[in-house]
Design a protein around this nucleic acid. Sequence first.
DNA 1: ACAATCCATGGGAGCGCTCCCAAGGGCGTT
DNA 2: AACGCCCTTGGGAGCGCTCCCATGGATTGT
Lengths: 342, 342
Amino acid sequence: MSSAERAARRPTLEAVARLAGVGRGTVSRVVNGLPGVSAKARTAVEAAIAELNYVPNPAARSLVTSRTDSIALVIPESESRLATEPYFSAVIRGVSTELADTEMQLLLILVRDQRELDRLIRFVEARRVDGVLLVSVHRDDPLPAFLEKTRIPTVLVGRRSPDEPLSHVHSDNVGGAALAVRHLLGRGRTTVATIAGPLDMDVGHSRLKGWRDAHAERGVEPDGSLIAPADFTEEGGRAAMRELLDRRPDIDAVFAASDVMAAGALTELRERGLRVPEEVAVIGFDDSIVARHTVPPLTSVSQPTEEMGRAITRLLLDEINDPAGPRRQLTLPTTLVERRTT
Amino acid sequence: MSSAERAARRPTLEAVARLAGVGRGTVSRVVNGLPGVSAKARTAVEAAIAELNYVPNPAARSLVTSRTDSIALVIPESESRLATEPYFSAVIRGVSTELADTEMQLLLILVRDQRELDRLIRFVEARRVDGVLLVSVHRDDPLPAFLEKTRIPTVLVGRRSPDEPLSHVHSDNVGGAALAVRHLLGRGRTTVATIAGPLDMDVGHSRLKGWRDAHAERGVEPDGSLIAPADFTEEGGRAAMRELLDRRPDIDAVFAASDVMAAGALTELRERGLRVPEEVAVIGFDDSIVARHTVPPLTSVSQPTEEMGRAITRLLLDEINDPAGPRRQLTLPTTLVERRTT
DNA sequence: ACAATCCATGGGAGCGCTCCCAAGGGCGTT
DNA sequence: AACGCCCTTGGGAGCGCTCCCATGGATTGT
């Protein structure tokens, strides 16, 4: 059976070398696009590769180079968010696009409980990827620290705090939020509340800071009763809106730190019979598809989500190629997209 | 530097064997949970593994076993759909959940253009995964045929046609559609149009068939003017609704083959001042989050998307373990979720 | 024309693991 | 007491590739 097995087996470098009448080294050089191969040899090898339909065995390559040619995208989020947030899809698309002209592959790892976390840790320790992209970081998330310790190339989307040491990409959350609030204030709204994101995340803090900054520019110190933090979910946004309205019936505008939360707020406003935007103006953040679907369509701060996916990928590939280099970071601009809620 | 390098390098099986005072074979047996190891040897090996923090090198293992311990989830869709369809996220969650107590990893591969397709083909030919999950199959998609030819374990979500030879999982599209239309007809609606899915996909056909079946049960042969196919996008749904209304102003109900298309239809109805559900009732399909967000909230046929993700994964793992066995297939039930559009 | 270079080339060594077989030790049987 | 069996064990061979070095031929300079 040995010869039959051998026939069924995929061709190896060796087989190509024999057929092309050259040595293994030469084939390897051709396959990897390395210099130092004569035109004649290259042609012969290429013909042999085509004839045998040769494809290199990645495991064998990986064993000696100790590269895996793949990166992991880690999404540490509860069920609900991945379901709701078009944000993640956009990032995935960006990553995939940037990877398209690479030989790198994308591993998707959802971390929703301890079991999945352990699995990820084992995985990274086995160095089954060359680098890690981590989306949605919480202030005290143990994961970034773990990755840092392991010294595996890592790029975060977002950051734990303003002085994040790891490479990361984030959008100009402070600026974007200020943009939104400035817009509201500039149109005569006087009592602008905010549904903040989780305050254990830098996005939460930064968007809240933007809200504060815009007020400060006008010399006003907004009251704490105008702030209600929520958890980026729709139900959370709705509850926050309810709380805000109960506390401050005089609210005439709301800046929500995400579209999904804004959608929840809109539901609450509708329920209470408050007209949007006449009585209460609303602005969201993310400019996701939900913003186009609310009634009325939601004015929102747009961040280039897909571009963020591309950016983190680029930075990660850089870092993989030069792990000793400095950490990379990038802030992407935000813009205001006006629709009907303002 | 050789000794320094050696020190920095991760521990190998050999190192564990030395420390435990046993042979490589014994360590390998312990690591892989194989029988034929004495309790004493097992204990010694486990201690050594813990002390060295040993993690097996997957590339070395893969080289000899020619398994990769990973599967690919292939999503061959245009930008727009991945963005819009919560469907994909749900499937991903299901897959990930099912994989959680496995050592298998998930590779996500988006195939949006020829370049990405070529890349996928190379990838599968290099056998960089043990199996493939393919979502969203079109009738003449070359991919299933390619996978079949390559003889790599494959499970489809959906099917090319009712006699799909490859393993697959799909929901009861015919039954679900019939459920919806029966509901409409049962409530006194007389002119039930349908916005069909792409007719080059089995889902498109099957849901259309369900619409026909429910009419047939009542002995009516619905007119072709009540059918408008679209492409599962919101804009497509809206255009189809427009067309339908222009053709048949007497329509008093619409069954859309997806929630996203139903959302488009609602927009068009609102624009025309037609009240939902009073003048026109609407039912969607998928019961995705968009169904909860339309105004009014959309009645929809629910399919267990996350369960589909789990199911395809189970079937794929089966098929990987027993590639010679018969092809697997599974039909999952659908239910009607009533909201405010009926 | 001869030496000094340079470039293309072949192939040995080795990456870390699994597979498998031969060997050793303990036990039961007659 | 001698033999046979079974279970545990160690380690050689080999998976397919890259890395690197020694070799030989062609090229250039004087």
